[in-house]
């Protein structure tokens, strides 16, 4: 292992940096696959973060806390659903308004909990396995939400492409008029997809306030909702690639911090640009095949569905 001791801790750091992005990204992916564009990820994550934190502080029960975070995200998503699906408000603007609302309401709920620490989410520790060199801490030393994030990605992938329900959801996203005429409830299915997106963003937020940095601080998402949004485009709407994108983005962010600490002779601002530029470059490389993206991008995204039409 000589000279490579740093690899394991770096990977561990990348995992925690990427996990909230994976959750928020995979949830929004399902929402978008159903043809709905919700730009309020940031607001839903904040609601999840504060609710999970408050619940953990008051009850000490982390399962309950994560569930509460998911519920809070769903509550926000429900608001979004009522506005955009039932009242046919513009999705882009409503999503942004949801973020403004989420920043405010999370600050309001959390104001008595600022500056209070909470115990970090427990990490797995299996005698024998977790102690294995290299793979031990990486494979067997994570907290439950990290494993859950992988599970959710695979579950969503299976659901979307291997089940009939997934096919219907994609149909609703690709051609809501056709789906409607076959007799599917476009609005109902979109509600479910939006709520799922909210729940996942909520859990992503809960991961921030319970595991990544176990505390509550106003606006602690610091723009991660936007990165999650970009990751879906990056992943060309494929669940597995959301995972790849989140780990790539997280990885480059961590590596540039390491490069700085190692005294690399470049301005820190230039190094900080790297994750964003790299994401663009990789997108350019994978975007060349237009037909492949067309195949996966939901055609009806952001479009309002009029049931009467």
């Amino acid at each position: 292992m000589n000279g490579f001791e740093w690899v394991v801790p770096v990977i561990l750091t990348v995992i925690t940096a990427a996990t909230p992005l994976v959750f928020a990204g995979i949830g929004e992916l399902v929402t978008e696959k159903a043809g709905v564009l919700n730009l309020g990820i940031e607001g839903m994550m904040l609601a999840g973060a504060v609710t999970a934190f408050v619940t953990a502080t008051l009850t000490g029960n982390y399962i309950l806390a994560v569930a509460a975070g998911a519920l809070a995200g769903m509550f926000m998503a429900f608001l979004f659903g009522v506005l955009t699906l039932s009242l046919m408000a513009n999705q882009v603007a409503t999503g942004l308004a949801l973020t403004l609302f989420g920043i405010g309401i999370s600050a309001l709920i959390g104001q008595d909990f600022v500056g209070e620490p909470v115990k970090a989410l427990e990490k797995l520790n299996i005698a024998g396995l977790t102690d294995l060199p290299v793979i031990g801490p990486i494979l067997f030393g994570q907290d439950a939400l990290v494993y859950l994030s992988f599970f959710v990605v695979f579950a969503v992938s299976w659901f979307l492409f291997k089940t009939k329900a997934g096919l219907i959801l994609r149909a609703v996203g690709d051609s809501h008029d056709a789906a409607h005429s076959i007799g599917y409830s476009v609005i109902g299915i979109r509600y479910l997809a939006v709520l799922f997106g909210g729940a996942m963003s909520g859990i992503g937020g809960a991961y921030l306030s319970l595991a990544y940095t176990p505390m509550w601080a106003e606006n602690m998402t610091a723009g991660r909702g936007w990165i999650a949004l970009a990751l879906i485009v990056f992943a060309t709407w494929k669940p597995g690639l959301v995972l790849v994108g989140a780990y790539m983005f997280g990885g480059i962010t961590i590596l540039q911090l390491h490069a700085q600490a190692a005294g690399l002779d470049l301005p820190s601002q230039v190094l900080s640009m790297l994750p964003y530029i790299a994401t663009i470059v990789v997108l350019v490389i994978i975007s060349k095949d237009e037909s492949r993206i067309r195949k996966h991008a939901p055609a009806c995204i952001g479009k309002i569905f009029h049931p009467a039409a």
């Binding site: 801790p9 940096a17 990544y212």
Partner: peptide, 27 residues
Amino acid sequence: IKVTWVNTWYDPGKEGDAAKALIDQGA
């Protein structure tokens, strides 16, 4: 002294990650 700039006054996640990077480099 090893310094990492996070280019923000306030981003708990990034500040924590910077601390981890510094610790991994021997701090």
